[in-house]
């Protein structure tokens, strides 16, 4: 299908952006979801406001104890950035799972988080890493935890007139372990189920602060509270993994979709949980 007739406006600064945002305006960043919805006529904004030339929304830096990733950071940039690899390696691991190279070259982290697709990798990573989103509006900004940001299916805490300016990630400590796993029908597809796993593994082999976050199984990223609680403080071994798998069921309420029924998704989540934790065990690390 063809796009509906619409206006296009390019903002070159935040001030210009605030003046442009109004009734019927839709922010355009990487456009990897938005442009397809225009072609399907699922959305008919009056004006597209292009924010890709706004310098304040760019850049990756470390300051004040956090890794700050500008909202306009493309997935491909995220994947090859040295600061990201050092301070938030889960993101580096996640990027190859995001769609295909052409999409990674255009799609942005801000766009992915704002769209909040429940099967997308970056929202889950933001939750798993306990990230904070910097939301800007005319005359100010506020900070919202990723766990509070995703409020439902394709919905977020963003208010009208507000945009994501950046995402702040806590710096990874030396004991942090991360992995992202998914089951996707084909490479680059949205995951049938996915898991972004973050935890600290002490020298004593005990787990601290586990943040297993599943995606593709609910209305947004699912931080598996009970499974995480089952792991907290325990030695990472088969018993701990089994306990977490047993606890996981109560964390999940996956919908049926084209790939299969909820019971299959629950099963796949247990499999991914097992595989993720297995990958952190010393034997596995040595073998790798």
């Amino acid at each position: 299908m063809k796009w509906p007739a619409l206006g296009y406006l390019r903002a070159s600064s935040l001030d210009e952006l605030w003046r442009a945002l109004g009734e019927g305006a839709q922010i355009l960043a990487g456009g990897q979801t938005l442009l397809a919805t225009l072609a399907f006529r699922l959305s008919e904004p009056g004006t597209l406001v292009d924010i890709t030339r706004i310098p304040e929304l760019r850049g990756i830096s470390v300051a004040g104890g956090v890794l700050r990733v500008g909202a306009l950071t493309r997935h491909a940039e995220l994947g090859r950035d040295a600061l990201v690899a050092r301070h938030a390696p889960l993101l580096t691991q996640a990027v190859p799972h995001i769609a295909h190279p052409a999409i990674r070259n255009r799609g942005t982290i801000g766009g992915s988080l704002a769209y909040a697709d429940p099967a997308a990798e970056l929202p889950a990573c933001a939750v798993a890493l306990d990230a904070t989103l910097v939301l800007a509006r005319a005359g100010g900004e506020r900070r919202v935890k990723a766990t509070e940001f995703f409020t439902g299916l394709l919905t977020t805490a963003l208010e009208p007139g507000e945009i994501i300016a950046a995402v702040e990630f806590p710096l990874a400590g030396p004991s942090q372990r991360t992995v992202i796993l998914e089951v996707a029908r084909r490479s680059g597809d949205y995951a049938m189920t996915g898991l972004a796993a973050v935890l600290d593994l002490g020298a004593d082999g005990r787990i601290a602060s586990p943040r297993l976050t599943f995606f593709g199984v609910g209305e947004g990223p699912v931080l598996a509270a009970r499974a995480n609680a089952a792991l907290e403080g325990r030695a990472l071994d088969a018993t701990a993994i089994a306990a977490a798998q047993a606890a996981l069921d109560a964390d999940l309420d996956p919908p049926a979709d084209l790939h299969g029924p909820p019971a299959m998704k629950r099963h796949l989540c247990r499999v991914l949980l097992g595989r993720a934790l297995q990958s952190f065990t010393p034997a596995t690390e040595q073998a790798a």
Binding site: V183, R185, M192, H259, G260, P261, A263, M264, R266, H267, L268
Partner: peptide, 13 residues
Amino acid sequence: FTPARILAALGRF
């Protein structure tokens, strides 16, 4: 032969 059908055949869920 989808994952759902194969897992169902294996009685995995």
